[in-house]
């Protein structure tokens, strides 16, 4: 087997290895198939090789971004979690994955990015806190407009009307989808037999953020909690394949520390802002003072530097004079 390939994905939170559905799908599948990947958890999509997350940089130096492409690639590398599925089960997988993409994914986009209370209090705050300065000021809203545009195109509308009507429709479809998944899962541990497959990875990727996030408007979560077999399914996978790691809580991983001061985010931004504002104020005062001539430093400083040895006693005198001048 070749060297482990690099997977760039979103950081995790709320007990999940990553907050993004698509990243979770890839991570889960990799665990199920036993594929070794070196993870790079970042919170700035611009640092990923394709500009999107998740992104897999293969050993052939190509970059794959869609979960389905990544899974096919891993399968070709003989990391196949669907190995012992019958043809009919494979067909069912494809069908249920389509069901989730058509009915559940739009509701997910809406609940994290379209619903105003959720967006402001959870999604935007999370992204702003985890992104480096200065991206945190504009990137979350940029991602939001992209996601809402995607939602509009998925539905085929001319104009996306983010209103109660839209919410009811999307959630109705999502509830139905979850019910159907629950019915299909029944009382089994995984969807097909005793070992998980790619369908399990997709279901996990879509349901885990709903289950674990703490959103003000949590209708999807409520509905999911009522479906015991699905909630147990998600918790099961988390327990077995993504055991709780104290490091993971913080959102940093073993590999890449954030060079742009991301660690400081845990200490709230306030400190950084205070520091910056003090620097700016002092700089302004100093430059004003210099410009208006209240303080003049330059002459003495340069002389000191140019004549180090001979002027030892003189230097001391100059310093003395300097201090007097400033005082």
């Amino acid at each position: 087997m070749a060297a482990p390939e690099e997977l760039f994905c979103w950081e995790g939170d709320w007990g999940l290895p990553s907050i993004s559905t698509e990243c979770l799908v890839v991570l889960a599948y990799a665990k199920f198939a036993g594929a070794p990947l070196s993870l790079r958890k970042i919170s700035n999509p611009w640092r990923s090789p394709s500009g999107l997350l998740p992104a897999l940089r293969t050993n052939q130096k190509t970059v794959l971004s869609r979960p389905s492409e990544i899974i096919i690639h891993l399968r070709k590398q003989k990391y196949n979690a669907d190995f012992d599925l019958s043809a009919k089960e494979g067909a069912d997988s494809l069908a249920f994955i389509s069901l989730m993409e058509e009915k559940l994914a739009p509701a997910l986009i809406y609940t994290f990015w379209g619903e105003s209370a959720n967006y402001v209090e959870v999604t935007r705050r999370w992204h702003a806190e985890h992104m480096p300065f200065p991206l945190r000021f504009f990137l979350p809203s940029w991602i939001q407009s992209q996601q809402l545009e995607k939602l509009r195109l998925l539905r085929g509308d001319d104009v996306l009307d983010v209103s109660g009507e839209l919410e009811k429709e999307l959630y109705h479809d999502a509830f139905e989808c979850m019910n159907l998944l629950s019915q299909r899962l029944g009382s089994h541990k995984f969807f097909f037999g005793d070992s998980p497959s790619s369908l399990d990875a997709y279901v996990f990727g879509h349901l885990a953020p709903i289950l674990k996030s703490k959103l003000p408007n949590g209708k999807l979560q409520q509905h999911l909690r009522n479906l015991d077999n699905l909630s147990n399914f998600c918790s099961n996978i988390l327990l077995l394949y993504f055991p709780r790691d104290p490091n993971r809580e913080g959102g940093t991983s073993t590999v890449t520390p954030q060079p742009e001061g991301g660690d400081l985010d845990h200490v709230p931004n306030k400190r950084m802002k205070q520091f910056l504002s003090v620097i700016v104020a002092m700089g302004a005062m100093l430059s004003y003072a210099l410009v208006t001539g209240m303080v003049s430093l330059e002459h003495f400083h340069t002389k000191v530097q140019e004549e180090p040895q001979d002027s030892q006693p003189i230097t001391a005198q100059h310093h003395y004079q300097e201090e007097e001048g400033e005082g």
Partner: peptide, 16 residues
């Protein structure tokens, strides 16, 4: 179970 499968396959046709 059959209804779940039916809906899923209909979405398969729409999606793909």
């Amino acid at each position: 179970v059959q209804r779940a499968e039916m809906k899923a396959y209909m979405e398969l046709v729409n999606n793909m």
